[in-house]
């Protein structure tokens, strides 16, 4: 029997337990709220550290909502996450973390006193950038459990999560370094004249300008990341695309494959378009000084 609602439910939530679906809905609703809050913070020129705390707090909140803790919320295994929610949450859990990590690594690359350290870090992230994401996902599910202690069990989803973070981080570092080059040398000279150096210079002079310069490129990388979360299907995770394949392999839905592909395509199109629109808003609000 053809049932569109249950099919859509399967497409978006997958194998997540029925009773706990409200938690996942709540976690998904938090994502656009976070986006709006970020624009609000930028508009009112709050400190960057407040944004950082807000981001990390909301990340923890969504993680808590989706997997629970056993005491207040019933605990659900991370591997039971599936459907479109898995795509969105994977993107949401990797994008801010990767950006923060990239900002930290840029500080090392810019300020490290030993050139060889910067060289080795650069080589590592260049290697990541030269490989397609599929190969990284595929191999990390094999090799990551081997690199850690045998007692530590790393599931496929965790391996995929780590891979996505490092993959996005490698591209974001490149964007940040490009943005660092775009900062006028007068800024560096003024900082030197005022005796500001190291972390203080990076935090108060370089990073705000880097973030502003790199915003368009960052947003297009984020959109790429949202699209790339579908690749976790290849390592066997039940994301929206995997669920779609399961769905159209059933007899009842077999003849409606075009409709289901169009629905999924539309959902991704909507997400990416909204992300691009959010980026435009952020660009407009962060454009201080200009009228």
């Amino acid at each position: 029997m053809f049932d569109l609602l249950s099919a859509l439910d399967f497409l978006s939530f997958g194998f997540y337990p029925d009773i706990d679906k409200w938690r996942l809905v709540l976690a998904i609703v938090i994502i656009p709220m976070h986006a709006v809050l970020t624009v609000f913070c930028v508009k009112n020129r709050y400190r960057l550290s407040y944004c950082l705390v807000l981001t990390l707090g909301l990340q923890m909140l969504t993680l808590w909502l989706s997997i629970g803790d056993g005491a207040i919320l019933r605990s659900v295994k991370l591997d039971e996450l599936s459907g479109l929610c898995l795509n969105l949450l994977l993107a949401y859990w990797s994008i801010p973390l990767a950006t923060i990590l990239a900002a930290g690594i840029c500080f090392i690359l810019i300020n490290a006193s030993s050139k060889s350290l910067a060289y080795i870090l650069g080589l590592f992230f260049d290697l990541i950038r030269s490989l397609p994401l599929v190969t990284l996902l595929f191999f990390n599910t094999l090799i990551l459990p081997m690199l850690f202690n045998p007692k530590l069990i790393i599931t496929r989803l965790e391996a995929a999560w780590i891979t996505l973070i490092f993959f996005l981080c490698a591209y974001t570092i490149q964007i940040f370094l490009g943005a660092y080059e775009a900062i006028s040398y007068h800024q560096h000279e003024s900082a030197k004249a005022l005796g500001i150096s190291g972390w203080k210079k990076y935090r108060h002079i370089d990073l705000p300008q880097m973030l502003k310069h790199s915003l368009p490129a960052l947003i297009s990388t984020y959109i790429g990341m949202i699209k790339d979360t579908t690749l976790v299907m290849i390592i066997g995770l039940a994301d929206s695309l995997g669920n779609l394949q399961l769905l159209i392999s059933r007899n009842a839905y077999k003849h409606y494959y075009i409709e289901f592909f169009f629905i999924l395509g539309f959902l991704f199109w909507l997400t990416c378009t909204l992300c691009g629109w959010w980026g435009k808003q952020l660009e407009r609000t962060s454009n201080y000084g200009k009228t």
Partner: peptide
């Protein structure tokens, strides 16, 4: 440009594969 840029490549590959087979 708007449509094809904003839909994941893997969705497109699987779509064309399913479409051609069927």
């Amino acid at each position: 440009i708007n449509i094809f840029r904003n839909i994941p490549l893997l969705v497109q590959i699987l779509f064309f594969h399913t479409l051609l087979i069927n």
